[in-house]
Design a protein around this nucleic acid. Structure first.
Length: 209
DNA sequence: TCATTAACACGGG
DNA sequence: CCCGTGTTAATGA
């Protein structure tokens, strides 16, 4: 386990901290689609991603889901940090986007490790990048048309699944973008005519990036 | 004008 | 066959 951590975080953390992570951390495999954290749940561990991707979703009172951002290799969850500090419950839902492996660290350590400069930097930088991604998500929602949003969504999927063959139905895309399938089908059809993508049954091949 | 909803036929897996 | 997909018509914002 320590060699996995070293290869991922060796540049980032000092030796003492790496050793502590090895001792305290638990490696967990999470299959695709598995629910990691739900709204209202207390958080006992903070995750460090080894590989894979986790989507972070906000849910409104009617159960509508809104995609906030993805966590990828080397990322951690900013929500966890806020929850640990304030003893509050999760405001978000976290679901594995693909098969994922991560290290779970007990939350008590999170504060204790602030004595390490590299840890403080990591936490701070994490907050920064998550905030930036949320701003980007807000921009997308507020200022982009559905066709641009769909393109962006597809490109994002390509990056995260590490494949330009996306196995997803029009209905699922519509659900994630909070729109109707008719719109997605029509836009995808248009993208296909513009040679941006190819459409198969429950499958989309992205040609342009 | 463009999204949503419902309805329906087609055909791929 | 089952359900994902393409399309249309009606209605609303």
């Amino acid at each position: 386990m320590s060699d996995i951590i070293s290869s991922l975080y060796g540049e980032l953390f000092e030796a003492d901290l790496l050793a502590e992570i090895s001792t305290c951390g638990i490696v967990k495999s999470v299959p695709k689609e598995e629910l990691l954290i739900d709204i209202g749940s207390y958080i006992k561990h903070m995750p460090l991603l080894i590989h894979g991707a986790i989507k972070i979703i906000r849910v409104d009172n009617d159960g509508n889901e809104l995609l906030l951002y993805f966590l990828e290799k080397g990322d951690t969850c900013a929500m966890t940090m806020t929850c640990c500090m304030g003893q509050s419950r999760s405001e978000i839902r976290a679901i594995a986007e693909v098969d994922t492996e991560l290290i779970l660290l007990p939350i008590e350590k999170m504060e204790e490790w602030l004595k390490y400069k590299t840890w403080r930097d990591f936490v701070f930088e994490s907050y920064n990048s998550r905030l930036y991604e949320m701003l980007d998500a807000i921009d997308t929602l507020a200022f982009m048309n559905m066709d641009d949003r769909l393109l962006k969504y597809l490109r994002n999927k390509v990056i995260i699944s590490k494949s330009n063959e996306l196995r997803i139905s029009h209905q699922d895309i519509a659900y994630e973008l909070n729109t109707s399938r008719v719109v997605i089908s029509r836009l995808l059809k248009r993208f296909e005519k513009e040679n941006k993508i190819k459409i198969y049954r429950s499958r989309v091949e992205v040609l342009e990036y």
